[in-house]
Write a protein that binds this DNA or RNA. Structure first.
Length: 550
DNA sequence: CGCTTTTGACCCGCGC
DNA sequence: GCGCGGGTCAAAAGCG
């Protein structure tokens, strides 16, 4: 009897404990729900505030444009923006240079002009004009006034307007250059002469290039843009030919990229971007454009402050893209991952290199770069977390209790479940380890690559630190993403990345998360996300809205 | 048929 | 001035 009583009491105790734990979990769930509700409310609030800002800016821009439209002929740009409101425009870094000045001076040289074919000349004019900068003017402003930061920009929409005006002015040249009317050509030249005056004091360097090293089996990485191959050349010292691509999203887009295999490790694809998109980008292309824009902005901002195009370590400087999409988050990420980014100068081209092949970079989840529409036969979908080490300090938030509807769809096949933090952590860690084990250690290859000397140094210096960070990254990834100040944009970027990939890859998606070479859905901090200042929240809301509604 | 890729020729900058 | 190498052009071929 006593045994039975004690047994029943034990059962009761177990039940009580279960009930207690269940209640505790319920309480946690409620807390998480409350937190998420607050986040959601904050997003809505930010979105509304940004909407107001945008309408204000549109009003003021309209008024300024109407005053300048007769001389600038920028109708096409406005029309284009109006026609494609769902598109966003990001600028890839480029460099205002005296090289252009030289060439431009040739245009005014009748002897030179007479010797050139007219069509060629007009084409060259067009191309060179389009290779103007997206961020230079803004960086100049930063140089002149170091207090100009993202927060100040958001506080003072006037600054942002100025940037947009600069971009508009730039686009005016781009769009009008497509017109072969002689009069417009003259306008272009004259406007360039004005720019030349501004650039007289610029260092004699060429356009900034953003070089991305990633492991990729396919001929080229899928970055969301459409490219047309226009040339191929065997570069010296590399048995693999270098392919030249031109952006075909817009017939006048000056952006070009070079793709070549690393001579020391054929699994590494080196993609170099150059130029500024003069058209709205598809959402699926914003990820790459954001990364390159942020990297270019970083190198440029640093170069402007140091008066040299070469830097050994990125220096953080909060800035924004010319259309107000912010690079601060990625720049922060780059700063937090010194092995990820390095800068150098090749052929007078300031080049910033994003090395996504480093297993200990703490940034192994740039897998969207290596995802490819070419590998559709081995589709898989898995989620990686881009989390900068800095994120580990963030408080926790568990998505398992998220009331966000998107969480459900993520779990259904495309995203890792957030139900178990430990499992998530192990999943992410395994994913990372798989990535690492898939390839050989690239460190031996980097020794032979000038571009990566800085990477190596930084990597060596920070390897132990990053190793430990990596161990914790996976564990804190879900927490970090949730309460990361960039969470909204991270979410938005993931959705856009997924949507873009899905649109570009119509084949079925399996749930195999470990399959090599598969298409991946990746969360990553984007320039669209903002720094931690509350003043920046408005853009976060808009970005999240844009992507979610898509 | 239209678009993309290939590929040899050409241009141009840079170093010697 | 010359040669080298990177980058681009443009006609031809390929492809769907």
């Amino acid at each position: 009897m006593e045994a039975e009583l004690s047994g029943s009491s034990i059962c009761n105790n177990d039940q009580e404990e279960l009930l207690k734990s269940a209640k505790e979990k319920m309480g946690e769930v409620k807390e998480e729900n409350q937190r998420l509700k607050k986040v959601l409310a904050q997003i809505v609030k930010e979105y509304q505030s940004l909407e107001k800002q945008i309408s204000l800016m549109a009003h003021s821009k309209q008024s300024t444009d109407t005053t300048n439209s007769s001389s600038n002929n920028n109708h096409e740009e406005q029309d284009d923006e109006n026609q494609e409101p769902e598109m966003v425009s990001l600028t890839l870094g480029s460099w205002s240079c005296n090289t252009n000045n030289k060439k431009h001076s040739n245009y005014d040289n009748p002897k030179k002009q007479a010797s050139d074919d007219n069509n060629k000349l007009s084409k060259r004019r067009k191309v060179e004009g389009e290779l103007d900068l997206g961020l230079d003017d803004y960086c100049k402003k930063i140089q002149q006034n170091p207090t100009v930061t993202t927060s100040s920009i958001n506080q003072n929409t006037l600054n942002l307007e100025n940037v947009n005006k600069d971009q508009s002015k730039e686009n005016i040249e781009i769009w009008t250059s497509n017109n072969r009317d002689l009069k417009e050509k003259e306008n272009i030249v004259s406007s360039r002469e004005g720019d030349d005056q501004d650039n007289l004091h610029q260092p004699q360097v060429k356009k900034t290039r953003v070089c991305i090293r990633s492991r990729c089996d396919s001929p080229t990485i899928h970055d969301g843009c459409h490219w047309r191959k226009y040339g191929q050349k065997v570069a010296k010292g590399n048995p693999c030919p270098r392919a030249y691509y031109r952006c075909t999203v817009s017939p006048t887009c000056p952006v070009r990229k070079q793709v070549q295999r690393c001579p020391h490790d054929m699994s590494i694809l080196i993609t170099t971007y150059e130029g500024t998109h003069n058209h709205p980008l598809p959402l699926s292309a914003t990820g790459m454009a954001s990364a390159t824009s942020a990297a270019a902005a970083m190198i440029k901002s640093n170069s402007l402050t140091s008066q040299t195009p070469t830097l050994t370590r990125p220096v953080g400087l909060t800035t924004s893209s010319s259309l107000g999409l912010h690079t601060s988050s990625l720049m922060t990420t780059f700063n937090n991952n010194p092995s990820l980014i390095s800068a150098s100068s090749h052929n007078s081209h300031p080049t910033v290199t994003l090395d996504l092949t480093l297993p200990n970079s703490g940034f192994t989840s740039f897998d969207w770069l290596s995802s490819s529409s070419y590998s559709s036969s081995r589709n898989s979908s898995f989620l990686n977390f881009s989390s900068s080490p800095a994120s580990s300090s963030l408080p926790s938030l568990d998505f398992s209790t998220s009331s966000l509807p998107t969480t459900t769809s993520w779990v259904n096949g495309y995203l890792l479940p957030y139900n178990d933090r430990n499992n998530n952590a192990s999943s992410v860690t395994n994913s990372t380890n798989n990535t690492n084990s898939m390839y050989q250690n690239p460190s031996s290859n980097n020794n032979n690559n000038n571009n990566n000397n800085n990477n190596n140094n930084n990597n060596n210096n920070n390897s132990s630190q990053q190793q430990s960070l990596n161990e914790t990254i996976a564990a804190v990834a879900t927490k970090a993403i949730a309460l990361n100040p960039n969470f909204q944009s991270v979410l938005a970027a993931a959705i856009s990345s997924y949507v873009g990939n899905k649109a570009n890859n119509k084949t079925n998606v399996s749930n195999d998360q470990s399959e090599e070479g598969g298409r991946s859905l990746t969360l990553f901090p984007t320039p669209m996300s903002l720094s931690t200042t509350s003043n920046n929240n408005a853009s976060v809301a808009t970005d999240a809205r844009d992507h979610i509604t898509d």
